[in-house]
Design a protein around this nucleic acid. Structure first.
Lengths: 215, 215
DNA sequence: TAGATTGTTAATCGATTAACAATC
DNA sequence: TAGATTGTTAATCGATTAACAATC
C-alpha cells in the first residue's frame, strides 16, 4: 500500500537506489532480492522492503524485484522523466565546474542559462552556454520560465538574489552559498549543499577516531 | 556531563553551530541563550542544549552561553585547531574548483599537493600548487605524510586509487566520485559527497511538491 | 531575592529492525 | 507442492521534544 507522505530519510535514499539499479541493469541483472541488494548497498533487507513499499508493491513474493521495473518506478518517483529548466547564477570557480561537471539531464534538469554580475565574464562559453549579464535575469526568466536555480554566488549576495529569483518564478534552489537558505515561502524547495560543513565533519572524525560508515 | 559517544546527527550539526557562532561573534554578540540561537538556526532550544551537553557544560545557568567560549569549544571538538595535510587527486573541472574554492585551513586541513594522471596537466598551477604526475603519489606521501585525500577522479579509477592511497597511509577521504566508498578498513574515515544525489532529491521535491525545511 | 536559563531526566515521536503470514 | 521472498505488522532503537529542578 502506498504511503501518503514520504519521510525525508527515504527520499535521501532514493537517488542511491536508482544509481545502484542502473548499475545492476547495466551488469545484466534481471531480478534482485531485497537481501541481495542489501548486501551490495550496505543496508538491511528490511529497510529496503519498507522503503520500496512506501510507493506500493514493486516486488513479487517468492521472486524478488524486477530490476528494470523497479528502476523505472523510482525514476518516475524522482521526477527524472521530466526535464526542469534550471539556470545557474555565479560563474566563478565552483559555478563553472558545476556547469561543466554535473549531468543535469540525468538528474531531471536542463541547464538553460548561466549568469554572472562580473562584466569581464560575459560572453565566455561553458558547456555550450554563454555567460550572460546578471542584469538580464528577469527578462530571461519571463521568456524561458526556468523553474529552478543553482546558486554559486558569494554569501553576501545570496539573500537579495534569492528574493529576486523568487520574483522571477523560481521554485527550487540548489544552494552552494555559505548562506543557510531556509524557506518560509510556501512551495519553494531548497537543497543546501554545504561543502565546507562536509569537510569539517571529516576533520572531526580524523581527530576523534570515530568513523562513520553511513553513506 | 560529557557523553562518551557522539551520535552522527549531532556531529552533522556541529559545523553549522560553529558557523553561526563565528557570525554572532563578528556581529558583536557576547552571550546568547539557547532560545535565541534556536530562533536564528531553525532548531529547538531543547535540541541545542542537548547537543552542547554532549560535550559537557558550556553554559551558565541563568545566563546562557558565552559566544566566544562556545565557539572556541566547538572549534576544538571539530579539530579545527590543527591542520591535517591533505592531497587532491584529479585536477579536472571539479578538482580544480575545489582546490581554488574551498578554504581548507578554516576546515582543519592544509592542501599540500594536487595530482592528475593526465600528462598535459602537469605543471599547471592552481591556488599556489602545481599539478603533479599521479605516478609520484607514493614518493610524495612518504616524504610529506598527508593524512587525507580529496577524490575528484572518475568512478572507474576510484577503487584502485583508494587502495593505493591507503597503502600510502591516507586515513580520510573526501570522496566526490560516483563510487560509493564504504570503509571496512578500520580507522579510515570517509565523507561521500554525492552532488548528483543532492540534485536528484531536488527534482523529487519539485515534482512531489514536498519541500524540506531541513538544513 | 526574583528572574532567567541551563543541565538533565522523562515523554514522545519517528525510523529501523525483526518477525511472520501471505503468496508467487 | 516446497521454497523463496515479499508486504506488512509488531518490537526495538534512537533522536527529538517537553518539563522542571538546579543554580547563576
Amino acid at each position: 500500500m502506498a504511503k501518503s507522505s514520504i519521510s525525508n530519510s527515504v527520499i535521501r535514499r532514493l537517488p542511491r537506489y536508482y544509481r545502484f539499479l542502473k548499475d545492476l541493469e547495466n551488469n545484466g541483472y534481471v531480478r534482485i532480492s531485497s537481501r541481495e541488494l542489501s548486501e551490495k548497498m550496505g543496508l538491511t533487507a528490511s529497510q529496503i522492503r519498507q522503503d520500496f513499499n512506501c510507493f506500493g508493491g514493486f516486488g513479487q513474493q517468492g521472486y524478488g524485484y524486477k530490476v528494470s521495473d523497479l528502476k523505472e518506478g523510482i525514476k518516475k518517483i524522482l521526477g527524472l522523466d521530466r526535464l526542469n529548466p534550471i539556470i545557474l547564477i555565479g560563474a566563478g570557480n565552483l559555478g563553472c565546474a558545476i556547469a561543466a561537471h554535473i549531468d543535469f539531464r540525468s538528474k531531471g534538469f536542463e541547464l538553460i542559462g548561466i549568469f554572472d554580475a562580473d562584466e569581464s565574464k560575459h560572453g565566455q562559453e561553458i558547456g555550450g552556454l554563454t555567460i550572460q549579464d546578471a542584469a538580464g535575469i528577469e527578462k530571461f526568466c519571463s521568456e524561458n520560465k526556468p523553474s529552478a536555480a543553482v546558486l554559486c554566488i558569494p554569501k553576501t549576495a545570496a539573500e537579495k538574489t534569492v528574493d529576486r529569483l523568487i520574483n522571477c518564478g523560481i521554485k527550487a534552489f540548489w544552494n552552494f552559498t555559505h548562506y543557510d537558505l531556509f524557506m518560509d515561502h510556501e512551495g519553494i524547495a531548497v537543497e543546501n549543499v554545504h561543502l565546507g560543513d562536509s569537510l569539517t565533519t571529516l576533520s572531526y572524525r580524523i581527530n576523534s577516531g570515530v568513523n562513520d560508515r553511513r553513506i
